[in-house]
Amino acid sequence: MSDDIIRVLYLDDEEPNLFSFKAAFRRDFEVHTCDEPHKAVRMLDDHEFHVVLSDQRMPRISGVEFFELIMPDHPDVSRVLVTGYADTDAVVDAINKGQVYRFVSKPWNEEELRGVIRSAYALNRSRVNSAQQGHQVLGALDGFAAETERLAELARSGGEGVAASVASDLATLESNIRAERERFDLWLQENQRRQG
């Protein structure tokens, strides 16, 4: 997984910062930069990013507000807030709304920021993977339930006596499996939401 290309998006209203960021991390990650929030939103829609970083103080919109904006469509992307001055309001806001994975203050420490981006990527991967695995389990459960239903149908068409009782058991089993599947689905969603 570490061999995969890590796609990073950095949003800052000050162009020199963007350039510095790209120069610093272009060797490690696939770095994309943007100085306009609405452009950044478009870029997220067009490409898959693993990590998105944003400056807190920007004209018109703050970093926290930007994260809030992209959350519904891109829940899995890891969000890192970069701020020139750690004002308490922003920190409290971010924690309460739960959109931020890490804070990084300017001037950044390159190594530290690199590590932060890597771990943010790992979180993104695990989130995506657990979602995929969950969906695989759901699919398996769906298949199992369908097979059981088919067997129950067969048993019913086999006549009276034992066959009928088997069919009844199978039908019960099928409904149990489906109930289990619903519960797992709910858990999965809950888990995802919590990780986000």
Partner: peptide, 14 residues
């Protein structure tokens, strides 16, 4: 601080 940290950031990073 905010005003100073930005230029310092890119001076250092650059």
């Amino acid at each position: 601080a905010h005003e100073l940290n930005n230029p310092i950031n890119y001076v250092q990073s650059n």
